[in-house]
């Protein structure tokens, strides 16, 4: 399309970023998101998995004005523009937290633990946050 396209020949690997932490209690969720955004520059086959408290990263209606921390949840909606469209959420984690797909601020594919595990096994590289 333009000169930003990567040159031919580089092997495309399957990368999965696994998000398991709630958004504000630790820095993991934000750091993980930044790594994902940076990884988009390398034209790899990137997917994101959300399980355990990581599903809370995608919860709608976050309002951080009262805690003086940046609300980075809108950034997950920018992932599509970065051509990162494979977002998987573990069903069991949602259910344990009383959440459904409707509570999430982006479109995701909800997978069972076994399905997510199978997806994970297919990857070349798995990076966990």
């Amino acid at each position: 399309m333009d000169e930003m396209d990567m040159e031919e020949g580089g092997a495309v690997k399957k990368f999965m970023f696994v998000n398991r932490k709630a958004p504000y209690g630790t820095i993991y969720a934000l750091e993980g998101l930044e790594v994902v955004l940076i990884s988009a520059a390398f034209d790899q086959d990137v997917s994101l998995a959300f399980c355990d408290d990581g599903v809370y990263e995608l919860k709608k209606g976050q309002d951080t004005k009262g805690i003086g921390v940046k609300n980075f949840s809108p950034t997950y909606r920018a992932l599509e523009g970065y051509d990162i469209e494979k977002l998987y959420v573990e069903k069991e984690s949602l259910e344990a937290r009383g959440l459904t797909e409707d509570d999430l601020l982006v479109d995701v594919q909800v997978l069972s633990s076994a399905e997510l595990g199978a997806m994970m096994a297919e990857q070349d590289v798995v990076i966990s946050f």
Binding site: D2, E3, M4, L37, A40, T75, R77, A78, G81
Partner: peptide
């Protein structure tokens, strides 16, 4: 909208979508 500054590739594509292909290029 997104609380980040877009990467140049993303900016180019998004500008093209909004302002037309004659502007959405490097």
């Amino acid at each position: 909208d997104y609380q980040i500054a877009p990467a140049v590739r993303v900016l180019t594509k998004a500008i093209g979508k909004k302002l037309g292909p004659e502007k959405g290029n490097s």
